[in-house]
Amino acid sequence: MIQNPGFLLTVLAFVAVIGPLVFVHELGHYLVGRWCGVKAEAFSIGFGPEIAAWVDRRGTRWRIGALPLGGYVRFKGDMNASSQTDPAWLQLPAAERAESFPAKPLWQRAAIVAAGPFINFLFAILILAAFAFAHGESRTPAVAGQVQPGSAAAAAGIQPGDRIVSLNGREVATFDDIRLYAQIRPDEPVKILIERAGRSIEKQGHVSAVQERDGFGNSYRIGRLGIAPGEPVVEPVALWRAPIVAIKQTGQIIRTMVETLGQILGGGRSVKELGGPLKIAEVSGQAATLGIESFVFFMALISINLGFINLLPIPMLDGGHLLFYGVEAVQRRPVSPRVQEWAYRSGLAVLLAMMMLVTFNDLSSFGLWERLSGLIG
């Protein structure tokens, strides 16, 4: 078993992951806002008491907060860090009103908000493109090289040499597609379309649920079909094609996130699987011990996660703002301040509840509650 990182390395690794990604996210808002002529009054990495701060020549206050769990850009016309509109912006002098966020056309406001998640995706794409160029792209055919006895594939009648064409109607191009599809669907039925000796055959199977442990002792419940690939195939990736490969990989990761979230909302997956900042900190430290490449790849995954979460249609998140702008575009007028206030309060309640849930899950994964019950007992 690999030795777990100490507390100091875990904290440093967490800050090294979250700090740059929050900065990149907020920089997206800032740069597009500046391009649209909106004045940024504050650019904050972290919340809470200021550790350091300075004001640039444009009057933007750049600050570092004591709690590195997020950040914000407060534009002129914003009432607070969640970008609620300050009614007082209408009383500003004409010149200042012109550089306020609420004064800008709808498309510019939407572009400023969308720039944060977009640049998180772009950041991840650049990392994944560099990996694709350096290491190539896995193109191992979706052919069963071996079938594990007693596995789900064996029970379904899959034989070595069978080519997997689709799983539940989803086309399969490479062996990685099989793995990605099965691992998030433990205990689920699956219709397997195979090609054998030039004939198409449909098989009915059931994805097995297995408990696996990584080198750090973490346990995971994942789905497995029980087939192994043949000879691995890794194709070199030209520099011009690397971004295309990275965009495809990013799309696969986002689709997996959407499907996993759908399983949780639909009751097919336990909410106990949701992790929060403490879990990210733990995995950050573990990734750091595995080397720079593992750590950078982990940053790419968290960057995609950050972009995806911010696009959820929850008020106070970027997705909530974009939802309001969509309604505004349809009804040709802004959402009423009263509705916005109610939505922001509800959104805050949802976010606080989610933070409590994932923190509880994180502490449970560390075995805190078991140790406490042992002390009490």
Rank of each mutant, 00 (worst) to 15 (best):
A287H: 01
I227P: 04
T260D: 14
I244Q: 04
I244V: 10
V283R: 04
A288K: 02
P236S: 12
G275I: 00
V245L: 07
A238I: 04
E231H: 12
G266N: 13
E231G: 08
Q249A: 13
I244N: 02
G251W: 04
P236Q: 10
A246V: 09
A288V: 13
V271L: 11
N218P: 00
K279E: 11
Q286F: 13
R241I: 05
I253V: 15
E231T: 15
R224A: 00
E259R: 11
A281P: 00
R241S: 10
P229N: 13
R224D: 00
T250N: 10
R269W: 03
L274D: 02
L265E: 14
F216S: 05
L265V: 13
I254R: 09
T260P: 13
R224K: 13
I280W: 11
S219N: 03
G276A: 09
P243R: 02
G276W: 15
A287T: 07
A228H: 11
R241K: 12
L261R: 11
R269H: 01
E259K: 10
W240P: 00
T250C: 09
P232E: 10
V234M: 07
T260S: 14
T260H: 13
V245F: 01
P229T: 10
S219R: 15
K248T: 09
G276L: 07
N218K: 05
L278A: 06
I247G: 00
I227L: 14
I264K: 03
G266V: 07
G291C: 12
K248E: 11
L261D: 11
P243Y: 00
I222G: 02
K272E: 12
I264E: 02
G285L: 00
G275T: 02
R269I: 05
F216Y: 14
I264V: 15
G276V: 07
G276S: 09
I254G: 06
F216P: 01
I254L: 11
K279D: 03
S284W: 06
V237W: 02
W240R: 01
M257T: 13
P277A: 14
P243N: 04
A228P: 08
A246Q: 04
G268C: 08
G262P: 11
V237H: 04
K272I: 10
R241W: 14
R224Y: 05
V245Q: 01
Y220F: 15
L278S: 08
Q263H: 13
A238F: 08
G291L: 08
A238M: 08
Y220K: 09
F216L: 07
I280F: 08
E231C: 05
G230N: 13
T260W: 06
K248R: 09
A242T: 01
R241C: 05
G262M: 12
S270E: 13
